[in-house]
Amino acid sequence: MITGVGKAVEDSNRRLLRARDAMDRRYAEPLDVPTLARIAHVSPAHFIRTFRATFGETPHRYLQRRRVERAMFLLRSGERSVTDICMDVGFSSLGTFSRVFRDIVGEPPSVYRQRGPLPAVPTCFAMRWARPSSFGEAPGE
């Protein structure tokens, strides 16, 4: 049986998941905290606090990481320019994209691309192995 407090936590988690799912689906769109807070039906300040407490990172950092994750795949699976990939995943500035990519992955996009094409394994395994962590460890650890 769920108590009143348990029900409130469950409702809050469901709202946060709704907003996080929107970020996962619409990562390339310009999403800001007020928009995401509206999706979660909470105030922007409450959304930032509870998102960080629940998922261990701010909504902005989560969205950046999702965008970089998609860029990692695109950089190693085609010949499109870094600038095109930057814009396609939702960054509006190549400089910001390169800085954030380096912060998350540990190397610039152009160096990451030089690793060559993704291995011939199921995509879910390759993406999990290469997925950047929000906790500072290198991909694949």
Rank of each mutant, 00 (worst) to 15 (best):
M1R: 12
T3D: 14
V5W: 07
V5A: 15
V5Q: 12
G6C: 06
G6L: 13
K7T: 14
E10F: 05
S12T: 15
S12L: 15
N13I: 09
A19C: 05
A19E: 00
D24P: 00
E29R: 06
P30K: 10
V33I: 15
T35W: 02
L36S: 00
R38I: 06
A40K: 01
H41V: 09
H41F: 05
H41Y: 05
H41W: 04
S43L: 13
H46P: 00
H46D: 10
F47H: 01
T50P: 00
F51C: 04
T54P: 01
P59T: 07
H60M: 13
L63R: 00
Q64D: 13
R65F: 00
R66F: 01
R70T: 13
R70S: 09
M72Y: 01
F73V: 15
L75K: 02
R80I: 05
R80L: 10
S81P: 00
I85M: 03
M87C: 04
D88L: 05
G90S: 05
G90R: 00
S93I: 02
L94H: 06
F97L: 03
F97E: 00
R99M: 11
V100K: 02
F101D: 01
R102A: 11
G106F: 11
R115Y: 08
R115D: 12
T123F: 08
C124G: 06
A130Q: 10
R131W: 07
S133I: 05
A138C: 08
P139C: 02
E141M: 12
